[in-house]
């Protein structure tokens, strides 16, 4: 997403992280802070929309599974998690992390943990792009009847 807020960016990074990565991020805090689960992890769907021709009329492509969770930290901050898939544990931890990140300065430990995840995700994208680039092709058109 371009032109996004820091919170949108970390939500995107958390959504792409594996459960193990989120657990490791949360594990770095020691014990999880006290929090109320306002909306227990719930799996549902989001209808994915496309556009005819890529830019035209909207249409429903099909649904995708999504799991969400909402928590409230002791100081009243609300933490959210919305991510593709059906992982309730990841959703709850990510919601707590979202809550904590909102109260943390830019040099905080969670911020740097999220930055590490972002670096790893970017590296994976870069490698995929370089591998695809190795299959770039120039076909030559033969002259007919030559």
């Amino acid at each position: 997403m371009s032109g996004t807020t820091p919170r949108q960016q970390w939500l995107a990074i958390l959504a792409r992280a594996s459960r193990a990565e989120i657990e490791s991020l949360a594990g770095g805090l020691g014990a999880l802070p006290d929090h109320d689960v306002l909306k227990a992890p719930e799996t549902g769907t989001v209808m994915v929309e496309g556009r005819a021709g890529g830019a035209g009329r909207r249409f429903n492509l099909g649904e995708a599974t999504v799991t969400r969770c909402v928590v409230r930290l002791g100081d009243g901050t609300m933490g959210f998690s919305y991510a593709l898939g059906r992982d309730g544990r990841k959703a709850r931890l990510a919601a707590v992390i979202d809550g904590l990140l909102q109260g943390e300065g830019e040099a905080g430990p969670l911020r740097s943990g999220v930055a590490e995840l972002a670096t790893r995700q970017q590296a994976a994208r870069t490698l995929a792009s370089r591998k695809a680039a190795a299959t770039k092709v120039d076909f030559f058109t033969l002259v007919r009847g030559a």
């Binding site: 209808m47 496309g50 830019a55 429903n60 649904e63």
Partner: peptide, 20 residues
């Protein structure tokens, strides 16, 4: 059996991370 939370924003295939 699943609740539907809503609809996504239309996906933007021009922004696709292309593999092919």
């Amino acid at each position: 059996t699943l609740p539907r939370f809503g609809s996504s924003e239309p996906v933007d295939t021009a922004q696709m991370a292309i593999r092919r």
